[in-house]
Computed example of a mutant assay.
Amino acid sequence: MNSAIASGARRLVPALGAVLLSACTTLMPVQEGQKLVGQPQAAIQAMFGQPTDAFRLPDGTSRWIYSKQPMGQQAYGADFDRNGNLTSFRNVLSTPELYKAQVNTWTKWDVAEHFGVTRLPVEYFPRMRNEVWSYRFRHEDVWPSLFHFYFDDAGVLRRTQITPDPLYEPDERFRRW
């Protein structure tokens, strides 16, 4: 009987370790990703899976995006040097990252490279002649919000806007007074 228990325990320990490792990458992906700086792309893919977006950047480096959109509020950027080794891992849908967008300079391609392809419905406002891409995020790491990028017909970023995320707004119709 004791050998059966010991055998079962030997099989359970590796499985439990895999579950705990998976929980860490789910609950603290930035911390886990930063531990892998210097590792090759294969190590990042083994930890986080296939990226939702992958870009070859003009300087020969590359960026993988792991987006939690459309319902999540994060997208993780994994940057690699020319040799394919991880140089940084961060949430690209944070307030400081979103503020890096350069109005009148960036294009749709620049926004996609930095934040991933939008997974929320694209809107078009004919009177403004602007296409709008939106991303869920936590403004200042607190408030559920949407960050909107407005592009002109040439695909140039002309303005940005932050609004509350209606997904998290209380529905006043059902409030009892």
Rank of each mutant, 00 (worst) to 15 (best):
T163E: 06
A9C: 07
A18I: 12
N91M: 05
G77L: 07
M71R: 04
R136L: 00
W143V: 11
L20T: 10
W106F: 08
F55S: 04
R159G: 01
P70D: 06
I65G: 02
L146K: 12
W64H: 13
N130I: 12
Q73R: 11
A101I: 03
F125Y: 15
Y76K: 05
S94Q: 10
V37C: 10
G84M: 02
L20Q: 11
A54K: 07
S88A: 12
T61Y: 06
N104C: 09
F174K: 15
L86Y: 03
S67P: 14
N83V: 02
G49V: 10
Y99P: 00
H114W: 01
S3W: 13
N104S: 14
Y168T: 09
L120R: 15
G155M: 12
D165M: 10
N130Q: 15
S3K: 13
L12C: 08
F80K: 06
V111E: 14
R158G: 04
N130G: 09
A112V: 00
P40M: 03
P121F: 02
E169Q: 14
Q161S: 01
A18C: 04
F147Q: 11
F149H: 12
R82Q: 12
M28A: 15
Y150H: 11
F147K: 12
R176M: 13
Q31F: 02
D141I: 04
R63W: 08
L36F: 07
W143I: 12
S134I: 00
F80W: 08
V132H: 07
H139K: 15
G49T: 07
G77A: 15
E172T: 14
F89P: 01
R138I: 05
R129V: 00
W177I: 10
Q34M: 06
A15H: 11
A46S: 15
A4F: 08
F151A: 07
A75M: 02
S7L: 07
L12Y: 11
V13R: 04
E32T: 08
A9G: 02
A154L: 10
L146P: 08
E131S: 15
E123K: 11
L20D: 06
S88Q: 11
Q41M: 01
A15M: 11
V37M: 10
P14G: 04
L157N: 01
G155P: 12
R11A: 13
P70E: 06
L93K: 12
D110S: 11
R175F: 06
A9S: 13
Y168V: 01
D171W: 09
